[in-house]
Amino acid sequence: MRFYRFFFLLLILAAVVRGQSKAVNPLFSVPNRVKFASHLYKTGDYIRAFDEYRALLTGTPDDTLRLAAGLALRNLGRFDEAEDYLQGLFFFSRLKDYAKTEFLKTEFIRGNYSGFVNLSGESFYSPDTFSVGIKRLKYFTYLILQETEITDSAEFVSGFAESQRRVISKFYSVKKRPERKDELLAAVLSAVIPGAGKIYTEDYSDGIVAFIFSGLFYGLAAHNFAVAKNAKGALFAGIGLFFHAGSVYGSATSAQIYNAQKRFEFESKLIEYAEKEKYFLPDTEKLFIK
């Protein structure tokens, strides 16, 4: 009897050992893969983090993993796919508020500011839990949108946290009184004095060159006309006029470039600030990064 019991145990042992040798590497167990994916995300390897989350989602449907996959895609700049993942959590998910908020944030990050403003106005996309943050980001977007007029500065600034108000009021002032050069004025100035428009748009070297060349050829033309060399005078006058016209057109363009550059600088500062403030929204990443 004892012999059979012993033999039976040996059989079990053999089965267990064989089972172990064929078993999945524990490094690929679900908890370990989740930990590893989180590590990859944290170290900025979003593409591999996404691969891990996607692999995990095929066997383990999980809302947190889905959210993480969406955010990894967003960090990779794959916004459409990121939004697909987030939209999958809009209904019947415990993380639906997070998903909607992150969806809105994605719209902002991808530069679809008007889309963000429209969606954030809908109650479906603005869950009460995060309504304060969404409102702040919406107000902030008004600073970026060129066509938007902000009237009441006190109301605008008071929407933000105490610590943010000083910077926000600075941005507000720039939005209200942007540094820009009038294109028409630049052209008129150059029409009166060649190169003056360029000086006005702070393109000093071009302004001086335009003044010298136009002046030189006009001077030569005047001299030739004075000594009755009309053909030569006309030639030099034509060249002078050519430089003068170029200076008028160039001044208007220079003003445009100046305005576009200032606009770009302002927008870059705004986006940098939004990033620094985590888009005024709660940190969703803490849900899956431990």
Binding site: R2, F6, L9, L13, V16
Partner: peptide, 17 residues
């Protein structure tokens, strides 16, 4: 001895389990 062997195998199985 056989009882000792049985117990040893159980412990062994538990560990690798």
């Amino acid at each position: 001895k056989s009882l000792f062997a049985e117990i040893s195998i159980f412990v062994f199985l538990f560990i690798i389990g």
